[in-house]
C-alpha cells in the first residue's frame, strides 16, 4: 500500500513538473495573462462595474467563482474543526487530550524531577489568575467593541472604494468576538453568540453568495453574471447592478468568515467542550 502511494505521488509530481515547463516565462509581456486580460481589467473595470477598486471588482465579479469557493473553503475548514474537536458529551476528545497530557507529564516528572512541577504550578496559578474577571480589561473591551464592529462594517461596505471587503471585515468582526471571549470568558460569550447561531450564520453566508449566482441563472444569465439582477434591484441600471451585487456577495463572505473564525477559536481554545476558553 505504501509503495502504491509513493508511486502515485511520484507520478503526480512528475506530471506537475512537466506542466511547469509549459508556463510562460516569468514577466513575459506576451504571455496571455499580460497581453489582454490585465489591460482589460485596468482600463475597463470602472466603466463596466462602476467600482473604482479594481481588486474588489476582479475578486467579486470577474472571478466570483473563485471567491465563492474560497468562502466555501473557510466554511469547510470551520466545519472540519468542529467535526474533529467538538465533543457533545464532554468525554471524547477533551477528556482524551487531558488524559494524554497527564500521562505525558507524569513520565516526564519521573525523569526530570522537580523543575517541571514548579513550572506547572506557575502555569496553574496563571490560569487561576486569568480566570478572574479583570475590571480594566473588561471596561476597555466594552469601550472598544462598538468601534471595532463599526469599523468592520465600514471595511465590508467600503470595499468598493478602498482596500477592504468581506474577508477583511469578517476577520475584524471575528477578532472582536474573540476579544470578548478572552476577556469575559468563553461561556459568557457563547451565551450571547451561541454556537448554533454562528453555524447558521456561516451557512447563511455561503447561501447568500451561491444564491446570488442561482438568482442570475434564474433570470437567464450565466451563474454569478450580475448584470441581469438590475431587474430585481429598484432603480438601477445593469452597471450599478454589478456594483450592488458585489456588496451583497461581500456581506455573505463577511458572515461566513466571522462565524467560522469565531467557531474555530471556540473549539480550539476549549479542547472542543466549549466550557473554558483561554
Amino acid at each position: 500500500m505504501k509503495t502504491i502511494g509513493l508511486l502515485s505521488v511520484l507520478f503526480t509530481g512528475i506530471l506537475l513538473m512537466i506542466a511547469v515547463v509549459d508556463f510562460p516565462d516569468w514577466g513575459d509581456p506576451h504571455s496571455p495573462a499580460n497581453s489582454y486580460l490585465s489591460t482589460h481589467y485596468i482600463e475597463d473595470v470602472e466603466e463596466e462595474t462602476a467600482v473604482p477598486n479594481m481588486v474588489t471588482a476582479v475578486l467579486a465579479d470577474y472571478r466570483a467563482f473563485d471567491t465563492m469557493l474560497e468562502t466555501s473553503v473557510v466554511f469547510v475548514a470551520g466545519i472540519a474543526i468542529f467535526a474533529i474537536l467538538r465533543s457533545i458529551d464532554g468525554t471524547s476528545l477533551a477528556g482524551t487530550t487531558r488524559r494524554l497530557q497527564r500521562r505525558g507529564r507524569s513520565k516526564k516528572e519521573k525523569r526530570k524531577g522537580q523543575g517541571r512541577n514548579r513550572r506547572d504550578e506557575m502555569v496553574a496559578a496563571a490560569e487561576r489568575e486569568a480566570a478572574k474577571p479583570d475590571l480594566i480589561v473588561q471596561t476597555t473591551v466594552r469601550l472598544l467593541m462598538p468601534t471595532i464592529q463599526l469599523f468592520a462594517l465600514y471595511v465590508i461596505a467600503h470595499g468598493h472604494h478602498s482596500p477592504g471587503g468581506g474577508f477583511q471585515g469578517g476577520v475584524i468582526l471575528a477578532a472582536g468576538l474573540i476579544l470578548v471571549a478572552m476577556s469575559f470568558g468563553l461561556e459568557n460569550t457563547l451565551a450571547q453568540v451561541p454556537e448554533k447561531l454562528s453555524l447558521q450564520l456561516g451557512n447563511l453566508g455561503v447561501l447568500i453568495f451561491a444564491g446570488t449566482g442561482v438568482l442570475c441563472l434564474l433570470l437567464g444569465a450565466n451563474f454569478l453574471d450580475y448584470h441581469v439582477l438590475a431587474a430585481i434591484y429598484p432603480a438601477t441600471d445593469e452597471i450599478m447592478a454589478r456594483s450592488h451585487s458585489m456588496l451583497v456577495v461581500e456581506i455573505g463572505v463577511g458572515f461566513t468568515v466571522m462565524s467560522m473564525l469565531y467557531l474555530i477559536y471556540a473549539n480550539l481554545s476549549s479542547h472542543g467542550d466549549l466550557k473554558k476558553g483561554l
Binding site: A125, A126, E129, A130, D134, L143, L144
Partner: peptide, 22 residues
C-alpha cells in the same frame, strides 16, 4: 484615542500575567 486606550490596557494585562506567573 484608540492607542491611548489600548496601549495602557495591554501593559496592564502583560504585567498581571507576569505577576501571576510569579
Amino acid at each position: 484615542v484608540f492607542i491611548f486606550i489600548t496601549g495602557p490596557t495591554t501593559t496592564h494585562v502583560l504585567m498581571e500575567a507576569g505577576y501571576a506567573l510569579g
